[in-house]
Design a protein around this nucleic acid. Structure first.
Lengths: 239, 239
DNA sequence: TCAAAAGTGTTTCTCGTACACCCATGT
DNA sequence: ACATGGGTGTACGAGAAACACTTTTGA
């Protein structure tokens, strides 16, 4: 940034206006696949408003009170929330900003603008999730069950699922919802859970074998024992 | 919303905590096509910081100071800004939320979280644009020229162009960047300006003639006189 | 030996791409 | 008449979809 003497003087004497400001929260849509179904991590509110209702985990953005100490980055706040709510390191989890919800009146207490993020947790990490330092009840619930949620969280969840559904097609998002090693049928189950449709096993397999020849995925040793014919195991190739 | 007596009592006695809050601005990436090139509407800052630099138009979200009067919706703020900066009615313009930028320190004055929106203005509306009630200098500038911008606005612009580039492929966004009546070559010019590549005229035409048979677009009377063979005129079919 | 699910083969159709070619106009 | 760009024809290849078939296991 161009920093002239004049500009430094301006900043030194700058006093922010005393107009009302909204609170900013960062809310998380934490998704995973359990038993072939898409599930979302919810917490039970034990405060008004919406006391007793299920809600998306989230919290306030930490804002500093000076020009120099402005607080945490928005992305850092999302990572911190994720870690607080799940105990999982952000490194293990796919985390991306989703959308910002800023309708007036969406929180009856005060003006709150919520920057929503969504996170995809591999199912093999789900047992490691130790929910909430906030000692609030947390639970995975099936998205398909359309749980009633506090505030406009049902809408946020819907937007998140839409987003994941769309990105599945043209990104490697699916690999964030599958264990570190996986079979093609397992990958297919992820697609079917998210998209809510079925895929022809043969055609699906071929589609992802292209990834194999492109070097995106590679064979892992062993076979997955199933109820029928064992399946070959793959993993994402590290680069 | 479930509103019990207990909840109403809670709200009546609720006093928001006195923790620091960020300011929220809504910034606009207003794009159009001029002479086959993608251009963005910029305003010149006449205040510190970044005095004299070009910046994206934008302004503060108006927040009420009570529970009942919480101020304007985020989307309404974007529409208001658009109208203030261009004089165009939001009805004539495609407007969509882009992304929220909340790095600490991105504004040296104070903590500012910016919710960015992008707008697509049809080139036939560009002459109607009467910039800024703020009496600040405004100008269209070519995106390809990579103008130096204040704050992190260059990054915001980049994200916007990326978004438009992506959505061109699977949405009807292109029709928001073309006059009310248009020819296939004009539509192609939009694609080429946004994507930065060239398209085979024959193949491009066929691709969009599918829209014709699908009833998305229809023939409009007359032909566009060009330097060579006149082109058939189409328009989006209203539904 | 049978059910079930992994995995292969084959055919058909659609669509993107490349490229040759024809057509209508201004100069 | 010819350059220019609109518009058409055609052929090829990749990939999606439908579906029959083979293989390998557990029960």
């Amino acid at each position: 940034m161009a920093s002239t003497k004049e500009e430094r003087a301006f900043l030194a004497s700058y006093r922010p206006g005393d107009f009302p400001r909204p609170a900013i929260t960062v809310d998380l849509v934490v998704l995973t696949i359990v038993d072939g179904a898409l599930e979302v991590l919810l917490v039970r509110r034990n405060e008004h408003p919406w006391k007793g209702a299920w809600a998306l985990p989230g919290g306030f953005l930490r804002v500093g009170d000076s020009r120099e100490q402005q607080g945490e980055d928005l992305d850092d706040a999302a990572q911190r929330e994720l870690e607080e709510e799940t105990g999982l390191s952000p490194k293990q989890v796919y985390l991306e900003q989703l959308y910002t919800f800023g309708r007036a009146g969406r929180d009856p207490r005060m003006r709150v603008v919520t920057v929503a993020y969504y996170a995809l947790v591999r199912p093999d990490l789900v047992p490691l999730v130790r929910p909430g330092g906030d000692a609030q009840a947390a639970a995975w619930q099936r998205v398909a069950d359309k749980p009633r949620l506090a505030f406009d969280h049902a809408q946020i969840l819907e937007v998140a699922v839409e987003r994941v559904r769309g990105k599945l097609e043209y990104s490697d998002l699916a690999f964030a919802l599958v264990p570190a090693t996986f079979t093609i049928p397992e990958l297919r189950a992820v697609y079917e859970a998210v998209k809510g449709t079925t895929y022809d096993p043969g055609n699906f397999r071929r589609r992802f074998q292209r990834l194999l020849s492109d070097g995106i995925i590679e064979r892992a040793p062993g076979k997955r024992i199933t109820a029928s014919k064992p399946a070959v195991i793959y993993r994402l190739r590290k680069r």
